[in-house]
Design a protein around this nucleic acid. Structure first.
Lengths: 156, 156
DNA sequence: TGACAGATTCTGCATTTGCTGAATATACAA
DNA sequence: TTGTATATTCAGCAAATGCAGAATCTGTCA
């Protein structure tokens, strides 16, 4: 059976990308961004928009948007090729970067709840909010602790 | 200035609910579900669908759907009132319950990557996947460790 | 400068989503 | 069994989203 498309991916690779993408969808990613994420993880060197579009079999404009999204979230890095207008992408080197947004959110929620709880609740509800604020704070701390060791060596 | 609506919430409470909801939106919640989440946190006793709809100023069908959503995610608990068809909701007593879904996801991703990495990548990409699987696993463990202490006392 | 290679933005479309108000279903009480 | 209070589902609508392909913009090279 010939390869009908222009994709250079092996079938196991496609399966891997799609399965990983399915899991990532639960995190609110679009399907193209999720697939691109998995795709970039498999690549050894930087890849161009045309390669990504061909391999993932989606339009270039679509993959362009997805790449920008991943870049904004810290999941991909954009490289300029010297002496060319061509744009290349590689997987982000800090897997925890996208999660910092989440931990920030947890911190904000914890702070908000702690600051307002006495104004908006009393009795059992106030006790619950106190507990909730502590929970968010502890979770944030635990996540940050787990993320930290994976920060890439600072010599960028 | 009179209260033009049927809501029993104080203005600080409304503010709190809306601010918290804004933060929760980033986690993919719908606005009504997010507001209902905050609302339930403020309540001392169980509340009916009619109360929720009136206080949040949304339709009953909408709040019904949102309540089911929160219940499915473990953010709310549904109580039957003895001798009545009325349905009541309270905030979930385990703040970490909704996160177990996330940690499960992390575990699945870690397992998927670890199992397939040798089939789909080589060289630097394979090393990156190995690191990624470990990262997911460590993050999952850290989150579970932080969540565990908040599990409510087993005496239901 | 002109021509080209490439990224980006734009336009249009189909799908999905969240919401409301109406219709329907269901449990309880008499 | 019938009436009633309540939850749930349905139908329709408006807004947002994701996508493809076309059009446009922008460096780079001759």
């Amino acid at each position: 059976m010939q390869n009908l498309s222009n994709s250079n991916l092996s079938q196991p690779q496609r399966h891997f990308i799609d399965e990983l993408a399915m899991l990532l969808l639960s995190w609110g990613m679009t399907i193209t961004a999720a697939r691109l994420y998995g795709y970039l993880q498999l690549q050894i060197g930087p890849v161009s928009l045309d390669e990504m579009a061909a391999d993932l079999e989606v339009s270039k404009s679509n993959v362009c948007a997805a790449a920008k999204l991943l870049e904004a979230h810290g999941n991909a890095r954009r490289l300029g090729e010297r002496g060319s207008k061509r744009v290349l992408y590689v997987a982000g080197d800090d897997p925890g970067l996208p999660l910092r947004r989440q931990t920030d959110l947890l911190g904000m929620m914890s702070a908000l709840i702690a600051a307002r709880k006495d104004d908006v609740a009393e009795g059992a509800a106030r006790a619950r909010l106190t507990r909730l604020a502590a929970f968010h704070r502890d979770l944030k701390d635990a996540m940050e602790g787990a993320i930290l060791p994976y920060k890439p060596k600072s010599g960028s």
